[in-house]
Every structure is written in structure tokens, then in C-alpha cells.
Design a protein around this nucleic acid. Structure first.
Lengths: 218, 218
DNA sequence: GGCTGTGAACCACTTCACAGCC
DNA sequence: GGCTGTGAAGTGGTTCACAGCC
């Protein structure tokens, strides 16, 4: 029930990329099958959780044997939409935007940077190793109507992030990866995921402080 | 009970940086007090959750009024360890490492890049806007014994990330922010947080595909 | 009347433990 | 014997709903 009615648990979804990577690793090591225990080793997760997660996808394991690496990897790729290529646009060609635009790992994983936008006219025409050229931000809508853009990465300063997000949404793009620190307001139906380095660092500093207190006490 | 015995729920901890940012915003707007409802607006979270989270810190609200912005912000900053400065080292001075090293937002939030390492000798001596200079990776241990390094950011290619992590741990650094795609093996007591762009993109593509299927059906 | 702080109900996810299959 | 798939139990987190204070 609810097997393939479309509903994977949220938590399972967020781990599928991890499994995919683990299987890739196993495949490179020429392992033909893997047990849930083996995947646990590769991902650092608990084996029972892995079995439950994978059971949501259907029945791809064999009792007494394990999971067929190729088959399961393919299945997860299909589920994640990795069997097709995705076109991404980067908005904001500052430090971070440039680093992202030149990152080769994207292409390997099926994400192609097809457009780059920036508000600064002096950056117009700059290009990347991948061949994308920086265009003025006011072209976003026009470009996006001409070529498919699946995902926009917002890498602008915080001060213009919301404005940019509005333009992105107006251009009909419904998936956003947000590097700006604030929470973006978007209409229903638009998915946003946020990457925030400061938050990660702050959480690390919390734990560091905590550990120090404990050592001081004990 | 367990109030200040040191145990905030994991989920609460991960939201504290969000509250801190929201309060900063409220302070900039000259708001003296905020209700949980107001914080909910600023963060996109649910007000009841916010009240519960904040109640874990102690009693800083006033019934009928709300929370004092300055006081609560300070309290959260203290809890997160943001009242002190943290020294970070960046390992790997490629595209990403350079972007991180030049990012001014860190300093604003109390994180100073005090050292940069890279295995490539040709990068040695390069420097950043912040004044840090790239040093050979084999100096990591020596440097870290001379000056305090609280957090290491691993921004190397995947192929050397584990090796680098071992060096980082050997140098006595116990907090790691990992940009490499794989799960790092570290001894107990070392905190690692992972930032993985591909995972974020893959999750976005999952939802995108999912939405498309739904629209196609309906 | 307004808003916090919190028990109680609810929910999602995790983990256990084992039946079922190879 | 080995390992999956899964009910059942356990856990942690969220949300409700309201008593309690301003």
C-alpha cells in the first residue's frame, strides 16, 4: 500500500542520494551484490533503516544474498530522476557563483550549467570552462522561455536574493537552490532548498563549546 | 529537568541559528519585542514549535508581550558560542576553497580564516583578501600546534578528502565541515558536518520529477 | 485580550526482532 | 546459514489546546 502510489517518506528521499553514491562506490570495487550491512558501512547509517528505506522502493533484494548493485543503483537513479539531464542556471557570478559555475562535478552527475546571470554589467560576457556565458539578469525571463532551465541556483548577496528569487519564479522556474542566508518567500509549488555555511559553522561551534564544557566539568 | 543539564534536543539546536538570524533582522527593523508568531513569519516555521524550542533555553519571554529581541538574541548567541571568535582552516585551495577563503560573511559572523592548506606546491604563498596565505598541507600539524584552529573546512577533491581528514584529526582538530561527497571516517569525539551540493540538486530533481508526474496524471 | 509555557495527543521516523525466503 | 522484508515497539519531534501570567 502506498508502495508506488508515489509516497516515499521524506526522510527516505533525503537518503537516496547517499545510497546511490554508496552503490557507485561498490560498483567501482567490482562488488556485484551488497548486503544492507555493507551499505551501512559505506554510508555510516544503520542497516535496519537501510532495509526499510529500500523496501519502500519495491522488492529489489534477495534474501540470503543481498541487493544487486547495478540493478538497485539504476532503480534509485530512476527514482531520483538521475537518468535524465537537468539544466541549471546560476544567478550571481561573484566568488561563490564562479566556483559553482566552474565545478566539474555537476556535469558528471547530470547537471549542466546552461546559463549564468549577474546584475553587474562589467561581468557580462565572462565565460566558464563549461562554455556558459554571463548574461544580464534582466534577460532571465527571455532566456528561460527559449531554453529549458530546470533549477536555479541563487548565489547573489543576501541583499538581492529575494528580488532575484522573484525574477526566477516569474521566469517559470520551480526549483531553487538558495545560498543566501535568509528564508526566501516563494509561491506554493516552488521547491527551495537552502545551503547555509554559516549555519553549519554555528552548529559546529555549538557542539565544540558543549564538548569543552563537558571536559572542563569532568 | 534536563533544562540546563546541557541537553537541548538535536532539532532545536539546528534551528537556533535560524532564530538568531530572525532576531537580528527584527533588531534591524527596530522591533524591541517579538512574538512567537512574528518569529514564525521571519523563519517560515510554526509558532508552537518556536515557543517550545525557546522554552528549552529557559524562560525569556513575557506572557502577553513576547520576547525581548536583544536579550533573546544574546542568549541564543551565547548558547551557540557566537560570543567568541572561532578560528578556521581551509584545506584545499581549488575553486571552492578560494571562494570560501574570500567569503567576507564568515568574519562578520565571528569565523576567521586563519590558515589555508593545499597539496599543490604551485599554490603555496597565494593569499586571500583576508590576509591568509596558502601553506603546504604537511605543515598542518605544525601550524595547528602553534596557533589555535577550531574548525577545519575540507574543500579538496573527493579522492584526497579522507586522507586530509586523517591529517586534520591527527593535528588535534575536532570539528570538520566536509564539502567532499563521501562520508568521512573519523574517531569518536570529532564532529563532522557535511555540505553536499549534488545531494541537494538530486533531491530537487526528485521533487521536480515527482511534480511533473502529478501534473501529467491530473 | 494577548501571548507564553507546557501537558497531552499525535505523528514520523527509527530500531528491534523475527518470520520468510534463498 | 545468511540476509531481506516487515510487523511491533520505541523514540524524538511536532502540533494542539489551554492554563497561567501580564
Amino acid at each position: 500500500m502506498a508502495q508506488h502510489a508515489g509516497g516515499l517518506p521524506e526522510a527516505t528521499i533525503s537518503r537516496l542520494p547517499l545510497y546511490h553514491r554508496a552503490l557507485l562506490e561498490a560498483a567501482e570495487l567490482k562488488e556485484l551484490t551488497v548486503s544492507s550491512e555493507r551499505i551501512a558501512e559505506l554510508t555510516g547509517l544503520n542497516a535496519a533503516k537501510i532495509r526499510k528505506d529500500l523496501s519502500h522502493l519495491g522488492t529489489y533484494g534477495t534474501r540470503g544474498v543481498g541487493y544487486n548493485v547495478e540493478q538497485l543503483m539504476h532503480q534509485i537513479a530512476r527514482e531520483l530522476g538521475l537518468t535524465e539531464d537537468w539544466a541549471i542556471a546560476i544567478v550571481g557570478f561573484g566568488n561563490l557563483g564562479q566556483a559553482l559555475a566552474n565545478y566539474k562535478g555537476f556535469l558528471e552527475r547530470g547537471f549542466e550549467v546552461v546559463a549564468i546571470f549577474d546584475a553587474d554589467p562589467s561581468k557580462e560576457g565572462m565565460s566558464t570552462t563549461g562554455g556558459a556565458v554571463v548574461m544580464p539578469i534582466d534577460q532571465l525571463k527571455a532566456i528561460s522561455s527559449r531554453k529549458r532551465i530546470d533549477i536555479a541556483i541563487i548565489a547573489t548577496p543576501a541583499s538581492s536574493a529575494q528580488e532575484v528569487a522573484d525574477l526566477v519564479v516569474a521566469a517559470g522556474i520551480t526549483s531553487i537552490l538558495n545560498f543566501a542566508p535568509q528564508v526566501l518567500a516563494v509561491p506554493e509549488g516552488v521547491s527551495v532548498r537552502k545551503v547555509d555555511l554559516s549555519i553549519e559553522l554555528q552548529i559546529l561551534s555549538f557542539y565544540k563549546q558543549r564538548t569543552r564544557m563537558k571536559t572542563a566539568e569532568g
